[in-house]
Design a protein around this nucleic acid. Structure first.
Lengths: 206, 206
DNA sequence: ACATGATTGGAGTGTCAACTCCAGAAAATG
DNA sequence: CATTTTCTGGAGTTGACACTCCAATCATGT
């Protein structure tokens, strides 16, 4: 029960397609230019729809933004699969690290993290989106945490390792690394951040 | 030679005071509501000046934003003194960690990092501010790095510890921790992030 | 086929934002 | 004191933005 279905109870196949096009176009624009930097007009043209359609499928811009957050969360998690689903060995963690670094390099270190950027922009200015952002981060954190828990349950991590805390620290390092990488346009910060936290996790291996 | 003097070569004492009031007011508003969420009108009222004064002291909104970045950088660094100037023992690092956590708690985890928030909002939408943001982060990073270098030079850190990389990782962990703390309105992410990176640094101690 | 409701196009509205202009007050300069 | 420059107030301009409205068109179920 995302915010989607509640807003528009009945959608024909065509309607859903149009709605999806709007969300996809809005997501790309908001990723590139920020939420405030993206007007509904921009979204219209990019999606090839008319003014009224956006307001037919979304109550207001905030509703659209919430749909964009859900969409980007899915995109981000999908881009990390299948690794994110099995982060239960140091090798998997290192491969995941490399994937994240490569992804940033591919896009010339531009844009940062889609979720992180929106979180920063919206946390204070648009409180109603905070639950969506928390959920997005939460799903990400869960992926990391489950792997670490498996490692500890299996005995690969010592008992004094706290998977929950380590997962949170890992997500934080990732976010901070992405932010600095975005500003400086080089992957060094992301690499340093992830290497440090992975090194820390490795120090708990048996 | 900051951007300040270049823009307005001659300032009387009164002029400088007015300019400072504008920057201080803009900084607070932009911290609370973001750059895009702060209009020049808002700044006017908060600073108690008239429309033309803002454009007398700043060529445009971007110039004002650049001044705000410089101001916030100074504020952030000052708030961490004198600790930031002497981060050359694990005790100092831990005290610094506690200070950062306390600062967040004091402001109810709202707002995140003044520099980090602006970096995220402006990196893509306003490229001309990126050098200012890089410099702000750079000064912060330097404070951390110098302490770690001193530790290694003194022999408190092993030779295989890379102070530059560790400093970068520390700043990244801090930024990511602040972002998650801002979204979730609790200090746990910041604590986890800093504890992890400090633990990692501690693993290099002799 | 027909009725119902979803879907679409596009003109229109009110608000608010950044920025300009100009003229007068205050301050520095010589 | 005279003059030059900085400083200030506020009205005005231009454009963009979120959002509304209404009429027309299509899809769907019976």
């Amino acid at each position: 029960m995302t915010a989607d279905e509640l807003a528009t109870p009945r959608l024909t196949r065509k309607g859903r397609a149009t709605r999806d096009r709007i969300v996809a176009a809005a997501s790309e624009l908001m990723f590139l230019r920020g939420v405030a930097g993206t007007s509904t007009d921009d979204v219209q043209h990019a999606a090839g729809v008319s003014t009224s359609q956006i307001y037919h499928y979304f109550r207001d811009k905030t509703a659209l933004v919430r749909a964009v957050i859900a969409y980007q969360t899915q995109q981000v998690l999908d881009a990390q699969q299948p690794l994110l689903g099995r982060l239960d060995t140091m090798e998997a963690l290192r491969a995941w690290r490399d994937l994240l670094v490569d992804l940033q390099r591919e896009r010339q270190c531009e844009g940062g993290c889609p979720i992180g950027s929106m979180a920063s922009e919206l946390s204070e200015t648009c409180p109603e989106t905070r639950p969506d952002l928390i959920e997005g981060f939460g799903r990400w954190e869960t992926g990391i945490r489950d792997g670490l828990r498996a490692m500890r349950d299996r005995g690969d991590l010592r008992g004094d390792a706290d998977p929950d805390e380590l997962a949170l620290a890992t997500l934080a390092a990732l976010q901070g690394g992405l932010l600095l990488t975005q500003v400086r346009r080089e992957t060094a910060p992301l690499e340093a951040a992830l290497d440090a936290v992975l090194g820390h996790i490795a120090s708990f291996t048996t």
